[in-house]
């Protein structure tokens, strides 16, 4: 997993509430058995004017010029700014895979759906929750200023705007640690293998049918 410490990234504003995972990566692309290559199909139905298919070369597809990521000023953006309940819907980890594959490293929104909230950091994607009023203000600033960048500092848990304003965000200490170190959850859990075995032994007496 890619480590996350600091990032000074161009911000793209996706002004929409309840961005669902079907919208982030439509189902036809979930047929892949790989973790990579989803970037060209991120937000496929918003980004292109035609229907997309897996395995197709996306370079010559007609673009929806109105869609934010197709506007030249947001090219190579690394921070996505969006609205409440981002990532709702299915548990597909293809959603964070597509966001990361496209080049996003962080998402800022007032709230995130639970499963997406769990999936994203496991792929080095930082989710930053800021209150509605702050997000509203950031939307105005991003739209008003071409080349608007935010400095994200994970160890300090801050986002700094171009004017120097410092915004703090909350972060689960475990997730923070894993993101900064690029740690694999499984390796960490296996350090507790003896505890898991002890649990199983004790539990097998109480609920033997589970361990049949």
């Amino acid at each position: 997993m890619q480590k996350f410490t600091q990032l000074n990234g161009l911000v793209a504003p996706l002004d929409r509430a309840n961005v669902d995972t079907d919208l982030i990566i439509p189902k036809q692309f979930l047929k892949s058995i790989k973790r990579t290559g989803f970037g060209p199909n991120l937000f496929d139905e918003l980004r292109y004017l035609d229907e997309g298919f897996p395995g197709q070369d996306a370079t010559n597809r007609p673009l929806n010029k109105d869609f934010v990521l197709n506007q030249p000023r947001y090219k190579n953006s690394e921070v996505l700014l969006s609205r409440a309940n981002f990532g709702c819907g299915s548990s597909r980890e293809h959603a964070p895979w597509a966001l990361v594959d496209y080049g996003f490293r962080a998402i800022i929104a007032p709230s995130f759906a639970d499963i997406f909230f769990n999936n994203a950091p496991k792929n080095g994607l930082l989710l930053i929750q800021l209150d509605e009023a702050t997000v509203e203000r950031l939307f105005k600033e991003v739209e008003a200023t071409e080349g608007y960048k935010l400095l994200v500092d994970l160890p300090a848990q801050t986002v700094t705007t171009p004017s120097g304003e410092v915004l703090s965000f909350e972060m689960d200490p475990f997730r923070k640690h894993c993101l900064i170190e690029g740690l694999d959850d499984i390796g960490l859990t296996l350090k507790d293998a003896a505890d898991i075995k002890a649990y199983e032994e004790a539990r097998a007496k109480v609920t033997p049918w589970i361990f049949a």
Partner: peptide, 14 residues
Amino acid sequence: GVGTSEVEHVLATQ
């Protein structure tokens, strides 16, 4: 529901 990383985590660690 869980994502694929957690599918792997459950397979490997229960």
